[in-house]
């Protein structure tokens, strides 16, 4: 809970905090680049940087298992899948002029307002809350393994079923059916004309 709220001032950062802030800036910058760059493949690569930065943040928060799972899953498979997707949909190499839709101003307004509101609320709510990082590591592998297979075993199994279903579904969806896709592609090319 609030550990020594009175002894630590607001602007007296420890080393962990400085590291956290610096990595956080990198992460945020990479995320911004992801959503604004016009080169599609570069967007995926900036996403790699952002996700990697987050893994470092997890480490700083003593959640090491999650950090490595993040690297493994997100950086290892999710981003690779995204790159495959870009390749299979013949994403243009280099700048593409229409990477952003016409919705930009609205998106900017909504996101900006949401950011402002949420930041203000969060800062106001947790002004006097400090995380204590000096105790035993909260996210060590044996801790996480213990709780996963002791307290969270059922959701864990359900999750594996979910992954199986997703696997099967992805395969089914992307098969080329004889009757489904051929007639579909003939009629849908002119329905695409209506905006």
């Amino acid at each position: 809970m609030n550990l020594a709220a009175t002894t630590q001032g607001f602007l007296s950062p420890t080393g962990v905090e400085i590291a956290f802030i610096l990595v956080g800036l990198v992460t945020l910058g990479a995320a911004v680049m992801t959503v604004t760059t016009r080169q599609l493949v570069h967007a995926a690569l900036w996403l790699v940087v952002a996700l990697g930065g987050l893994a470092v943040e997890y480490l700083l928060l003593t959640a090491e298992f999650i950090a490595w799972v993040q690297v493994l899953i997100y950086l290892g498979s999710v981003v690779v899948l995204l790159l495959f997707g870009l390749m299979l949909t013949k994403a243009p190499i280099g700048r593409s002029p229409d990477a952003d839709s016409g919705n930009r101003p609205v998106a900017l307004a909504v996101a900006g307002t949401a950011a402002a509101a949420l930041v203000w609320v969060v800062v106001d709510a947790f002004r006097t809350s400090w995380i204590d990082l000096d105790g035993p590591a909260q996210g060590s592998t044996d801790t996480v393994g213990a709780i996963l297979f002791r307290h969270w075993v059922l959701p864990f199994e359900a999750l594996s079923v979910l992954l199986l279903a997703a696997l099967v579904g992805a395969i089914v969806l992307s098969r080329k059916h004889a009757k489904g896709s051929e007639t579909g592609s003939a009629t849908d090319s002119d329905s695409e004309g209506e905006r």
């Binding site: 962990v16 905090e17 959503v35 943040e57 928060l61 998106a107 947790f126 995380i131």
Partner: peptide, 24 residues
């Protein structure tokens, strides 16, 4: 560590993602 740092970073990342969903 002040709790505000991860919380604010989380908020900002979320809103960046939000912008991307709506604008790309």
């Amino acid at each position: 560590m002040h709790l505000a740092y991860p919380a604010v970073l989380s908020v900002l990342l979320f809103c960046t993602g939000l912008y991307g969903v709506l604008a790309r």
